[in-house]
């Protein structure tokens, strides 16, 4: 099913409540959506939960998908918007002291000092990325985490490729400034 059916065919079936067809779409796009979520939440467990929420939302909103854009574009649009909302919610929770952030390090190093330095660097990078403006962050994540082309990012953000290019440049410039402080 996965190799033979196009996205549009699967979407048509999924619109007729065919959960099997939707499951193929989930398999096809789960890694990409997860990568987007990682760009926003920087934590594997949170990114997986968010991936789940995004696909459930996509299933519920599938009838409103008019197929003017590609299914992937529509799905990535949901992903970035939901991720932005999630990070806003988390910011509010950490502001009110509800959120206990668990720092996750992918490195297993016996040298504690090295680990500490690495986790400080990671925290600095996360903080810098979180300070990007909403549109800059969306463009940065889609371009670097998902490795979409400028045209694809432009489609998701409903902007011109030129404006998208300038948005990504400004994101890089801002990150540069924030990291060199």
């Amino acid at each position: 099913m996965q190799a033979t059916h196009t996205d549009n065919e699967l979407v048509q079936k999924a619109k007729d409540e065919d959960t099997g067809a939707f499951s193929v779409l989930v398999d096809r796009y789960r890694q990409k959506v997860f990568q987007t979520c990682m760009g926003f939440v920087h934590n594997t467990d949170d990114a997986e939960d968010l991936t789940q929420e995004i696909f459930v939302k996509a299933w519920n909103a599938l009838r409103s998908f008019d197929e003017r854009a590609a299914f992937s574009t529509w799905l990535y649009r949901i992903a970035v918007n939901k991720s932005i909302n999630h990070t806003r919610k988390m910011k509010l929770r950490s502001f009110t002291g509800i959120n206990d952030e668990v720092t996750e390090s992918g490195y297993v190093d016996e040298n504690a000092e090295n680990n500490l330095m690495r986790s400080e660097q990671r925290a600095q990078i996360k903080s810098a990325v979180s300070k990007l403006k909403s549109r800059q962050k969306k463009a940065f994540v889609l371009f670097y985490y998902q490795e979409l082309s400028l045209t694809e990012v432009a489609d998701v953000l409903e902007m011109s490729p030129k404006a998208t290019e300038s948005l990504i440049f400004r994101a890089r410039k801002k990150l540069q400034g924030l990291l060199s402080r």
Partner: peptide
């Protein structure tokens, strides 16, 4: 800046659990 991009590379190579599909379909 290099550090930032190696951080991005490291994060984007993480793999999503294959059980995510099962969880999504169960919720739906």
């Amino acid at each position: 800046t290099q550090m930032l991009f190696s951080f991005v590379t490291e994060e984007k190579t993480r793999k999503v659990s294959s059980f995510v599909t099962t969880r999504i379909m169960a919720e739906i």
